[in-house]
Nucleic acid binder design. Sequence first.
DNA 1: CGTCTTATGCTCGGGATCCGAGCATAACTG
DNA 2: CAGTTATGCTCGGATCCCGAGCATAAGACG
Lengths: 396, 396
Amino acid sequence: MPTVSRRSAATARWHTAAQVLAVMRQHPGISRAAMAQRIGLTRGLATEVTARLRAAHLLTEEPAPLSGRGRPTTVLRPHPEGPVVLAVHLRHEEWHCAVAALDGTLGTVDIHRHDTGSPDGRSPAAVLDAIRRTVEQTYERYGHRLRAVSLAAPAAIHSGHLAQASTLGWGPVDTSVLTAGLGVPLLVGNDATLAGVAEARTGAAVTAGTALHLIVEVGVGGTLTVDGHPVTGGHGAAGEYGHLPFGDRTLACPCGARGCWDLEVDGRALARHLGEPEPGDPRRHALAVLGRTDDSAREAVAAVAASLGAGVAALVNAHDPDIVTLGGLAIPLRRAAAFGVAYRDGLMSLHRADPATIVDAVHGDDGPLQGAVVLGLDHATSEPAIADWADRHRSR
Amino acid sequence: MPTVSRRSAATARWHTAAQVLAVMRQHPGISRAAMAQRIGLTRGLATEVTARLRAAHLLTEEPAPLSGRGRPTTVLRPHPEGPVVLAVHLRHEEWHCAVAALDGTLGTVDIHRHDTGSPDGRSPAAVLDAIRRTVEQTYERYGHRLRAVSLAAPAAIHSGHLAQASTLGWGPVDTSVLTAGLGVPLLVGNDATLAGVAEARTGAAVTAGTALHLIVEVGVGGTLTVDGHPVTGGHGAAGEYGHLPFGDRTLACPCGARGCWDLEVDGRALARHLGEPEPGDPRRHALAVLGRTDDSAREAVAAVAASLGAGVAALVNAHDPDIVTLGGLAIPLRRAAAFGVAYRDGLMSLHRADPATIVDAVHGDDGPLQGAVVLGLDHATSEPAIADWADRHRSR
DNA sequence: CGTCTTATGCTCGGGATCCGAGCATAACTG
DNA sequence: CAGTTATGCTCGGATCCCGAGCATAAGACG
């Protein structure tokens, strides 16, 4: 049901201002003149809006480097006292975090290893405690300037919380402790989903309206994005493409279903094809097999690449993306000839004349962190959030 | 990439007015007071906006039936000289059409059978000619009041045209002839997609944010809708869920791929399970088998229902819809016990605690027509379209 | 070196939307 | 018939947007 939500004048008045900030994010370092032309602002309105944004400590203007004739213009930059977001990327052995300004530029990325010394150093409580301390330090430093904390997690997401993080061995985890009591919103997303968002906004799919991102590490995850926004489903749990039954129905998946694609495209699948036992670290095993040149390894890679290609084709049939971005082990797997064959064979003839292009993702391991930044800034630059910021700022 | 499109003041000024029309569509016969409360308008603004809409011949107000205390309010109705859209639903043996007013109320639904007397009476040229004549008659009657023509077709859609309509035996067909030269936009959608839109807007999924609609006739089609809008993909070809390879990889599908789900859930599948040759009319055959009570028929139905349930579960895993609406043969197939078992077994354990509810679609055969109405009215009540209408109307 | 061209920023008046407050109106209640 | 209640209408003020005109600062050119 399309919600008819009132955008009251109090927030609507920041509509154009929010557009300006969005352009500043899309093109960091853009000049005021170029911004105005891109949005279609008259020069008078550009003057007014930028003045308003400056007064609200949302941006600053500095003289732009001269280029050609005409009166010099200015470059739009985030205000040094402006809003920031804290992005966190939770991984298997460590977690990364960084503070981002309104144009998406990151501060230093801090890397914290989980405390593997203690027996429960990787327990939810221990990890969340550590992250909470960083959140508190960030809040102490930035105060109300901290407008959102966003978390990318290697977990199935359900209604804003972690439902299951199998690589960490976590069951359901409530993440609200991270910002509880601070009055700062917490945004949570699946790491593969957020990597897809990063590709759609600042990566290999920026020109696409509808983009499909798939990443293979242990199993396969990803997301469909439309105009840079992920299709997240009713509880935010969408994108579990690895649990489509493209595979062998006799194989049970840890997720509870059978025949999952997950089991066909990673190191576990390679080991099966090679007649080896299930590897302890499927990702490391996959890299090893990909580096081998013997026939049995090549055949195993070909089989797995074919499964990947066929699955990608199936998702192109179902979703008709403009582009497919691949990450993780999917990048080397795509190099195998079997991938392309299976991709083309799996397409409906309808798509064969002009199949969706497949490209490598440009964000590597930092895709989820970049996506978390996007998530946080989407919130921080929304019209209500800007209106709220401006109100607070004026009253001080 | 999120497009930063300028909503210039000239169209933005109709933002609130468009909201009023949207509420009038969602709740035909709503009172002005209820509308104002729902959108959050002050009484003064409600007066202004409705006056503007009346002046633009977009709606009329009549005294509302009295209920309780207080000053009587008015009921909002489409203006008798207001915009209309023509919706067309193309089917195998016939095509339906109807004119709809701004609140979605239909005029009479005309049913035209294809001319099966002549050898090429069902050719694209003959059918499009017949529809074109109706479009012209509608245009003669309504003139510029006709704001859009929308077509629901049993075809794969690609970039606004029909790529392949296998039930009609059509290859690629250019539909632009339907409105060429009239200056009326033509909107084209897949019939299953539009049936899903109808369910999401006025049917069984009105309360859901993310809804999955699936319909089984010959093969399976459907769509994912988010807030009532279909996820259409880059070329409008999304929703071909029938061509996900959930089935037997040794079976070739007419679509060009192998192992398509399409082949597992309809009359063709029932015939295969019964050891019969492929039926000429799979839909009729399916109904016949569903009506049988012998063991072999029951087993065939169970096998097909299980395939349907497993596929639905897979799509719930991938898309996390709030609700799944089923249409066509999926409704009786769901009654088989095997469906529910396969559905639950196919879900990730994450979803088992609170699986997406599955319901029957409430629009039957007229779902696609209703969806075409939605498509047309979405266009006709968009802010630019209303601004354009108001401009034309003022200048007369 | 002065003038022209070009691109951009700034100012100001007018039109439009939205809001809030106050008043007017038309039903029901007792 | 007076009081209550819900709603419509009017009006002034705040804000945004637009367009036109003017101001400004650079390069281009003789």
